Every structure is written in structure tokens, then in C-alpha cells.
Amino acid sequence: MEDFIIEKVERKSKVELPENLVFGKIFTDHIFEMDYDESNGGWQKPTIKKFHDLSISPAAMVFHYGQAIFEGLKAYKQVNGKIALFRPEENVKRLNRSARRLCIPEVEPELALKAIKELVRIDKDWIPSKPGYSLYIRPFIIATEPCFGVRASNNYKFMIILSPVGPYYPEGFLPVPIMVTDKYVRAVRKGTGDCKAAGNYAAGLLAQSEAKDEGYSQVLWLDAIEQNYIEEVGAMNIFVRFKDEVATPMLSGSILPGITRMSVIQLLKDWGYNVTERLISIHEVIDAYNNGKLLEIFGTGTAAVISSVSRLKYNDKILQFNDTKPGELATKLYEELTGIQYGKIEDRYGWITYVD
């Protein structure tokens, strides 16, 4: 593995964070960068340097053909003072899976993990100590070759930046309202919906904006073909707790394989729940609600961890849950996951990686 070049910035003053952190608005002192040149041996010069703006050609292929992928994970300051990452190796696997789909060269997993850990170690003073707060880690790769030819780029830049964050939703752990849309589609099977490609998120912005205009926090997408089966929310996977089953949409190729989703499935199985990954019709959800067989709906994701749904709207039908109190199972899962992440609960699964 190539040695890192580290150009460390010495701060003249202590890191001072605002009392209430807005998600993803503040960035730390350093950035990790590594460039790829097809004609010169691939990935080279992994460097940690001062956070800075990029100088990039307006003809860079990322701006024209959308070769851009990213990941999201967090560093936590545990109750014993240790710095912990939650399943970072899974983020690296998913980054490379996205890279393969978008014809982007993969990054050596060991190098990517080392880069994440080293960057967090250098900027550890930016990790908030406040409960529920953390340091968000954003690895991403963009195509940088200046060219108008419609093909895969020959040059790329892999970067990692860090941002101290509070809760993803302003409501915190309070339930959030979600709107189901059949006006637009986000992704189709065999497309790029199961990748963390930047274009997937751009495709959801209009629906999300319209949902917010109606007082809803996020959009729940339906499948693109039949417009019948629920898939995922823009920022999280979805779970439906029926009376005798906890169901989540199966990974059909248009749903992001969430790492929190994977962890929740494991916890639920170990707790003895009947967990299924299957097709879930929006009409099945509505019928279960009408028949008293729907107990709660919640989302899972790195940013929000667990989010109960307070209200679900589909056309003129509104499924009303509790506006002020998260669901019973959602609360239990949130406490278990955050307990492991912050070191309050034993990590029985080996999910935690420590930053030395």
C-alpha cells in the first residue's frame, strides 16, 4: 500500500462548535485526496491536506455525464472517550459496488479504510461530545477528465471530507411525516437505484420539494413498473411492522442496500421477530392500517439511524400514527444501535472499528 502524504494544519485555537449543529453545514480542517490516471498506473498520491476548494475544468466529465458516487458513515465519541466507526468496511464494499456499476475504478479497501481512520484521527477534535451528535464522514469519487466524449472518464478524484453533525431531522428522534408519491419514479430495477450515485438523489429532489410544500419530511417511493410496491425513502430504507411480521422491501435492484437496514434485520432476527424481505404493496399497508393490523412504520439509515413515521399520505388517504412518540420497536432499535455506537451497550457483533 502506498504511503500517505500528510500535510497537517496546526490550529491556532480550539475547535468551537455551535450549540445546535445543522446537518452537513460545517467542515473540518482536513481533506483526503487521491487521483486516478488511467495512463499513469491508476490511483496515486494519497494525501491528507488542508480543506480547500477544488480547481477543476468546466469540461470535467462529472459535470456532463454524471460519474459521481459517494458514501456516508459516522465517527462517534463513545462514553469511555474512544472514537468508534460503525461497520466502515461495509461502506467501502458499497462504494466499490457503486464504482463498478458506474465504470469508476475501484479503490483498494484497505487503503480506503486507512484513509477514513487517519483523517478522523487527525480531526478528532471536531467530534461532538453531545449525545446524539457525531462526525459525519463523506467519501466520494468524481470523474475529472476534461472531455465531451460519452464514455467512462480516464481520470478521477477520490476524496473524503468530514462534518460535525447533530440530528438529521430537525425533529430529532421525534416521528416524521412521509408522503408516498406515484407522480414520479426514482429508479428502476437493473438501473442504478442500488448504488449511491449522485444522480439518484437529484432525481428525487422535485418530489421531495413538493412533499415539503405539503408538510412532509420525505418521500416514500413506489416501484417504477407497477407503481404498487413501496421501495425506500430518499434518505432511508423502510420497515413495516404488522401484527405478526416485520417486513422490509426486498433488494430488487432499485433499492439501496442500507448498512443500518442490514444491522436492523440482524437485531430483529436475534430478538425473535418474524422478519421478511419481500414485496410490500402500498394497498397492503393501507388495508392493514384499516384492519388494525399495522402497528408502526419506521425508516433506517446512517444519517437518522431510526425514524418513526408519524403520518403516511398516499393520494387522499392518510395513515395517522403518533405525532409525538416514536413507535415501540423503533425506539428499542434506536436505543440498541446508538447504544452500540456510543459504547453504552456491548458490541456483540464486531460492528465497531476503533480509531487509534
Rank of each mutant, 00 (worst) to 15 (best):
N20S: 13
K45C: 04
F32H: 08
E108R: 08
M236R: 09
K190M: 12
G149Y: 06
I26Y: 12
F298V: 01
K77Y: 01
G234I: 00
N200C: 11
E210T: 07
K212I: 09
I282E: 07
D223R: 04
A304N: 12
V176R: 12
T302I: 01
A152V: 05
Y76E: 04
G72I: 05
R94V: 00
A202Y: 12
E231K: 09
L222Q: 03
T28P: 12
K8Y: 06
K49R: 15
P170F: 09
Y334T: 00
V107H: 03
K344C: 08
Q341R: 11
A143M: 09
L294C: 05
K157N: 15
F148W: 04
V176G: 10
S57G: 10
A304V: 10
V62Q: 12
L294Q: 07
N200G: 12
S57Y: 02
Y76C: 02
P146G: 10
V79C: 07
A235Y: 00
S13A: 14
I160Y: 11
L73T: 14
D194N: 14
I306L: 12
I31M: 15
P146Q: 10
I116F: 09
P167H: 07
D244V: 00
F148S: 15
K269A: 01
F321C: 12
G66V: 01
G66H: 11
I340L: 12
K25L: 12
K93V: 01
Y184C: 02
R101W: 02
R11Y: 02
V9G: 03
W351P: 06
A197I: 10
M1W: 02
T28Y: 06
I340P: 03
H64P: 07
I265H: 04
E328K: 14
I127Q: 07
A84I: 05
T300Y: 06
S55F: 09
T331V: 01
F23S: 06
G350L: 07
H64C: 06
Q227P: 00
L256C: 07
Y168V: 09
S39K: 15
T353H: 14
E171K: 15
N228H: 06
Q320E: 15
E38P: 01
E336D: 08
I286H: 08
V92F: 00
Q67A: 10
L222M: 00
P167N: 02
V285R: 11
L205Y: 13
S307L: 06
D125F: 03
